[in-house]
Design a protein around this nucleic acid. Structure first.
Length: 843
DNA sequence: GCAAGGTC
């Protein structure tokens, strides 16, 4: 009998899927690593009786790292980590012996079905499994397919069975996009981390972190915390005035009214309104209103919402909450706690889960009533296709679980009961009063039916005194009218719950990794957790973020992650080549890295304020009133001297403004610095140096061929230079003026069969066409085509853009100024074809 | 000693 090996992403899923597919009749045993189990049963596959072996891995089998010798910090320049340093795949968790385990179980199997999670990471793990297992599996008779991918969107009988009936193939492009992400994260993260750590540790003895890490997720996470800090620091309280009126509704009862103008920021205006109203004896009812409103029951619970509530209401940090939830899960109290889904599958046994709670000492009454009267269908949520929402699986008491486990379990269970309860209904009443010319309102809410708030009492509509019954035209005596002076107050530090929301919104991290990133910035001493689980950045955290802003804001903006992911999605969708995207993105970050290294003095200025005595140079100004140290003048920043540094960008930039992505105001083609598409830009890099694989302004699409003078440059069409069209080298100062007055010039995908440069397709207006005959359009090689010879004039630009790395272009002794080629004379140096020029450029 | 992503 042939054997089918099936592999899921984690042990729990292997078990659930095997249970469904074997209809409960399977035999299970632990694998050699003690973590994974193997579930066996018989059935049919491809029309024949077979033995199924369902098992799992534990997440990724492999991890990416540099070759050993590149992990010696003292021997390797971090800049080498961008390209030279080779990487290798190592076992992700050597203790689990996953490769050996897979090979033991896979030996002699005939088919493999991959049941890994249906996301990009899962697709990547498919290939990790195949790499381990294919060499030991039986060789298939030629032409027979042996590798299958099951695609499922929930762990339900129908979904799993239909996935089994419609097996596909693993998607190599999706897997490649993850390979690219791993390599980018590793190279970029390690290069910046090593450089920063070595640079600042060598300079400031009193740094309160042994490691100054940088990462595309942790750094923007820190950025959010510092952004709030800056808002607090730069907050200027404003005084405002509010009119407050009281009317007497009864002998001993009065009603406080809100002013319809809410507030004014001018004392005299406030005084004027007070004068207009304070002498009035009566308030007249202008209108009354009653409206039935509903407070919606919560969506079913996913990981991120659980973490938010754990932090804000239970005072538990995300890392701790996650550990607690995992323990509850492995002990069978709750369902799988890592899920993005807030929608229950249609056939989920909600009543069954609810029945488990029917005898619980705390909520038996509510549950019994719900079961008797009929449950409410949960609201329609988001189905991410991973796991059902977090649901209690069996009843537990406080004595049984104790401590934080109980508190988290209690919350999860109350939340679950709430999702199948009814909405809370209440009546909103408003009365509008006129006192003199001014309008005032009071409103009150009375509960009609509490619905889910009975089980989540902290969500209830607060009890209020009921409003008097009255109608339009009624009058009440005015108790008093007075003016209150108040001040606007600054926001408080970011709560962990708010940070989780921001991270989720900007796609920083995943449900599983968000707690890790938050933990990271705490452990690195970039932020501290204050009361109310608010995150207050430390001096080190503030200086780092302010430094990034000063040097290259993209290093800390939340857009950095989504920009990279946009590129990676091109690979996943098969729209761009893996090597090209990786090459381009690494090239951009390598340039960012060099620019960062060159500009590190800018961050040093901020560091010195917090971490070292005054530099010997420079004349001290005066002492700080707060810390009594001498203040130091900071050239491009604020000017406080103690532990405060003020952000100079604060007035113009918001770190969450998605519109900001570059350093320039939007280049028109070349040399303007910063990319108009703003995915990732580099201070000082023009589009003609950009190797973006699909942007219509990039070198990849506008490059023509190797420069006629310098070794490394590529001649690139400046698409915005018309009507005085230009082709310029992106390294030296060679520039060719050509096709003056042409209406349109395009770089063709075709190449010259003599010199292999890209052909140019040129359109002229009829009246201005210099082309022979009455032609208006011509395609040819800018170097070899006799028609174009007359229309191209080679020159040297006066200077190169100063920001170009490597300094201004090499000036050539010969050929400065006018250098028109004599007609018919061959090109002085045969340009290499465009692709080999591009390939050389990548190196 | 470094990243981020899986998971135990």
């Amino acid at each position: 009998m042939k054997t089918v090996l099936m592999v899921a992403e984690k042990p729990s899923l292997a078990q659930s899927i095997a249970k469904i597919l074997s209809r409960g009749s399977m035999s299970s045993h632990k694998g050699l690593n003690g973590a994974c189990s193997v579930h066996e049963y018989t059935g049919t596959f491809a029309g024949q009786p077979v033995r199924f072996k369902m098992t799992s891995v534990c997440g990724h089998v492999m991890t990416l790292d540099f070759l050993g010798k590149y992990n010696k910090w003292d021997k390797v320049d971090p800049a080498e980590l961008f390209s030279q340093a080779p990487t290798e795949k190592k076992e992700a968790n050597p203790k689990l012996n996953m490769v050996k385990f897979l090979q033991v179980e896979g030996r002699g199997c005939d088919y493999i079905v991959l049941w890994l999670d249906c996301d990009k990471e899962g697709e990547n793990i498919c290939f990790e499994v195949l790499d381990a297992v294919l060499p030991v599996m039986n060789k298939a008779p030629s032409g027979e397919k042996t590798v299958f991918r099951a695609r499922f969107s929930s762990i339900t009988d129908t979904d799993i069975c239909s996935a089994m009936a419609r097996l596909g193939e693993p998607d190599h492009n999706e897997a490649l996009s993850v390979d690219a992400r791993q390599e980018l994260d590793l190279r970029i993260g390690c290069a910046f981390t090593r450089f920063q750590t070595k640079y600042f540790q060598g300079k400031y003895g009193d740094l309160d972190s042994s490691l100054i890490s940088f990462g595309p997720c942790q750094t923007p996470t820190l950025g959010f915390c510092v952004e709030r800090h800056d808002k607090i620091q730069s907050f200027k309280p404003e005084t405002y005035w509010v009119l407050q009126a009281k009317v007497n509704t009864d002998k001993d009862r009065s009603l406080l009214l809100d002013w319809d103008r809410v507030r004014v920021f001018d004392r005299e205006i406030a005084q004027m309104f007070l004068n207009l109203t304070k002498l009035e004896k009566e308030a007249q009812v202008e209108a009354t209103g009653k409206k039935e409103k509903a407070k919606q029951r919560p969506l079913a619970l996913n990981t991120v919402e659980m973490l938010r509530v754990a932090s804000s209401s239970l005072g538990m940090g995300p890392q701790h909450a996650m550990q607690t939830a995992e323990r509850l899960y492995t002990q069978g109290y709750i369902s799988y706690p890592r899920t993005e889904t807030t929608h229950y599958p249609e056939n989920f046994d909600l009543k069954g889960s609810l029945r488990q709670q029917a005898n619980h000492p705390y909520w038996a009454d509510t549950v019994k009533r719900l079961l008797a009267e009929g449950i409410n269908r949960p609201r329609k949520g988001h189905d991410a296709g991973d796991h059902p929402p977090i649901t209690p699986m069996r009843s537990a008491t406080e004595a049984e679980l104790g401590g934080d486990a109980w508190r988290l379990y209690e919350y999860i269970t109350r939340h679950f009961i709430a999702t199948v309860s009814h909405d809370c209904k209440y009546l909103q009443s408003t009365i509008s009063f006129r006192i003199g010319p001014e309008l005032f309102t009071c409103s009150g809410r009375t509960v009609i039916s509490p619905g889910f708030t009975e089980i989540m009492p902290w969500q209830s509509v607060p009890l209020e005194e009921s409003l008097p019954t009255c109608q339009r035209g009624d009058t009440f005596p005015v108790g008093e009218v007075k003016v209150l002076e108040k001040q606007t107050s600054p926001p408080d530090y970011l709560t962990e719950a708010e940070l989780i929301t921001l991270m989720e919104k900007h796609g920083i991290g995943t449900d599983a990794s968000i707690p890790v990133h938050i933990n990271n910035i705490c452990q690195r001493n970039y932020v501290t957790v204050e009361s109310g689980r608010r995150l207050k950045p430390t001096n080190l955290g503030i200086v780092l973020v302010h430094g990034y802003y000063k040097i290259d804001a993209e290093l800390v903006l939340p857009t950095i992650r989504s920009a990279v992911e946009k590129q990676l999605n091109l690979i996943a969708q098969g729209k761009a080549d893996y090597r090209q995207v990786l090459g381009h993105t690494l090239d951009v970050f390598k340039r960012k890295f060099h620019y960062f290294v060159d500009s590190i003095a800018g961050m040093d200025e901020l560091m010195e304020v917090s971490f070292s005595p005054l530099a010997a140079t420079g004349k001290p100004l005066s002492r700080c009133g707060k810390c009594h140290r001498f203040m130091k003048y900071i050239q491009v920043g604020g000017s406080k001297g103690c532990d405060l540094t003020l952000p100079h960008w604060a007035s113009t930039l918001s770190s969450v403004d998605p519109g900001f992505g570059g350093t320039g105001s939007g280049p028109r083609g070349q040399g303007a610095g910063g990319c108009h598409r703003a995915p990732l830009s580099l201070p000082g890099m023009g589009c003609n140096e950009c190797t973006h694989p699909s942007c219509q302004h990039s070198l990849s699409l506008l490059g023509i061929g190797q420069c006629v003078e310098c070794e490394s440059g590529v001649l690139v069409l400046d698409p915005t230079s018309g009507p005085k069209w230009k082709v310029a080298c992106n390294k030296c100062n060679v520039v060719a003026h050509c096709f003056e007055n042409a209406h349109r010039v395009r770089v063709s995908a075709d190449t010259c069969n003599v010199c292999e440069a890209a052909l140019l397709d040129v359109d002229f207006n009829k009246a201005k066409s210099p082309l022979p005959g009455d032609e208006t359009q011509h395609m040819g090689c800018v170097f070899c085509d006799p028609v174009f010879q007359e229309l191209v004039e080679l020159k040297h630009a006066a200077s190169c853009h100063p920001m170009h790395r490597g300094g201004p272009g090499r000036r050539q002794g010969r050929g400065r100024g006018r250098a028109r080629r004599p007609p018919g004379k061959p090109n002085p140096r045969r340009p290499k074809d465009k692709m080999s020029a591009l390939a050389a450029y990548f190196v």
